[in-house]
Nucleic acid binder design. Structure first.
Length: 492
RNA sequence: CGGGACGUAGCGCAGCCCGGUAGCGCACACGUCUGGGGGGCGUGUGGUCGCUGGUUCAAAUCCAGUCGUCCCGACCA
């Protein structure tokens, strides 16, 4: 019918686009590189956001909001950060339009309304936030400062892809200030753990925690920690980052505090963020050729009920039975929709909710009611079963948990099957070209080698896993000695 | 920024080469038969053919320009 989905095998990126657009998560907008997040996609984001927000608050953070605009002079204060983002900044230069004297009904930028100082639209907020923190921090008693912001940011990317890389995107950015280096590092890894827990337990996407090499480090950070996920096409996706910023921003913005000994010290900083990109990870980790597969814990809709009518007289009977089920499900906090719309047939609805990835579908007709059962279909395995109406809501609650677990286990098995240790250059190249996935290999620790490998294979070092075991080996490219393996992959 | 494709009804497309009444599918509205995997039949609604200019008696179609979008690549925390 009208909603054919390209298969993964035929064209993986077209498949991805089809899921986003036909699954009604988002659409291209009339603004280059920017997407419209549609209600279904936004509901997913809200569920993710709400859960993360709870986790941030449980770890002592509070929310605040800082401006969208960053005066250029503030933006350039931290040199490395500025340099890293300079190439992809949108800049506001004027504050007024006026009627075009030569073209009625059209507007032009008023050349008289040029700003004294250009405003950079934030690609990230370290600059404006640290400039503000300067006024908030005087004493060790003001520390730690644990603030998070939910915001949009703009990065003028050359090439965009729905959710994975858009010119404007939604995210959260935590910015914390600490009295000691140790405490800041502890915060950095704590938030990495929060991200890993969220992504694994709620999104059912297994991740590897690690630290970035200097090449891949956030501009302005001393260390960048990350969680890396593996997509079904064997490419890696950075799902979240947590940065130890050292005293770089404190020094750039002169943020000092008096310690207990009445001596001035620079503050230690972290920042950490995840974005709507996570939705891209969710889609590519779980979905299949029939459509999206939503993990129950963050699914915009957990259960859909489809009635099977046989003539007008059966409607009240089905409606009544469904009403009691809905009541029971809602009492358990399960989101449910009764789709008794008349304009589509049951078969159409089945396909539609599969496309949208609703975890559990209940179908109920007179035949079922006579037998005191319903037909339950789970989206992840597409299994259908006939289940007694008695105790159904509890059964569904358990089923949702099973599905959540099953989706995670499946993704975990796939991820683990696709981490391969290699010990030679030929093997390295062959694995990348034939199987992709993560390749665990020795590296001599130099940026030059990393660059060369990237140049020749497009693979980058995704991370040095945190729980890495130390072992002696030889770099796959140079043969120089190495003390541990790192994870390479081609990445989004 | 390089390569490719595209812009015609809400969506997806044909028509363009060879200029001459604006088409199809889906969706939508109404009616009806239906209903356990993307229904059938009937009747309808809906379009300044991306924009600007040119050629012509006549332009969706030819020419020039322009704007925009997508895909692949380069780039990217």
């Amino acid at each position: 019918m009208s909603k054919e989905i390209t298969t993964r095998e035929a064209d993986y990126s077209q498949w991805y686009n089809d899921l986003v657009i036909k699954g009604e998560l988002a659409d291209h907008s009339s603004v280059r590189g920017c997407m419209v997040i549609k209600p279904y996609g936004y509901a997913l984001w809200e569920n993710m956001r709400d859960q993360l927000d709870k986790m941030f608050k449980a770890t002592g953070h509070v929310n605040a909001y800082f401006p969208l605009f960053v005066p250029k002079s503030l933006f350039e204060a931290e040199e490395k950060n500025a340099e890293g983002f300079a190439k992809e900044c949108a800049v506001v230069t004027h504050y007024r339009l006026k009627n075009d004297p030569n073209n009625k009904g059209k507007l032009i930028v008023d050349p008289e309304a040029k700003l004294e100082e250009e405003l950079v639209i934030r690609p990230t907020s370290e600059a404006i936030i640290w400039n503000t923190y300067k006024g908030w921090i005087q004493s060790y008693r003001d520390l730690p400062l644990l603030i998070n912001q939910w915001a949009n940011v703009v990065r003028w990317e050359m090439r965009t892809r729905l959710f994975l890389r858009t010119a404007e995107f939604l995210w959260q950015e935590g910015h914390t200030a600490h009295a000691t280096k140790e405490e800041a590092i502890e915060e950095t890894t704590k938030m990495l753990d929060v991200y890993a827990d969220f992504v694994e337990q709620y999104m059912a996407v297994p991740v590897i925690k690690g630290v970035k090499t200097p090449n891949e480090r956030f501009a302005g950070a001393e260390d960048t920690y990350c969680i890396e996920a593996l997509m079904q096409d064997g490419k890696a996706l950075q799902a979240g980052t947590s940065h130890f910023l050292g005293q770089n921003f404190a020094k750039a913005f002169d943020v000092q505090f008096l310690n207990k000994e009445n001596k001035k010290e620079f503050v230690w900083a972290t920042s950490w963020g995840v974005s709507t990109r996570l939705i891209g990870a969710l889609i590519m980790a779980h979905s299949d050729d029939q459509g999206l597969i939503m993990p129950p814990r963050i699914a915009p809709l957990q259960v859909v009920i489809v009635p099977i009518y046989k003539g007008e007289e059966s409607k009240p009977i089905i409606d009544e039975k469904v009403a009691s089920l809905i009541k029971d499900l809602k009492a358990l906090g399960i989101s449910v929709k009764y789709d008794n719309s008349e304009n589509t047939r049951p078969g159409w609805k089945f396909a539609e909710y599969e496309l949208k990835g609703v975890p559990v579908r209940v179908a109920m007709g007179l035949r079922d009611i006579e037998n005191n059962v319903v037909e339950l279909a789970r989206r992840d395995t597409k299994e259908k079963s006939s289940v007694s109406f008695d105790g159904l809501a509890d059964y569904i609650q358990q089923l949702l948990e099973d599905i959540q677990q099953q989706i995670f286990n499946k993704a975990l098995a796939f991820r683990n099957e696709n981490i391969r240790e290699v010990n030679s250059w030929d093997e390295f190249v062959e694995i990348l070209d034939t199987k992709a996935g993560f390749v665990s290999a020795h590296w001599d620790g130099t940026s030059e080698t990393e660059d060369k490998i990237k140049e020749q294979t497009k693979a980058t070092i995704r991370c040095i896993p945190l729980d890495n075991k130390q072992e002696n080996g030889k770099c796959i490219l140079t043969g120089n000695p190495s003390t541990q393996r790192v994870l390479f992959a081609r990445a989004y």
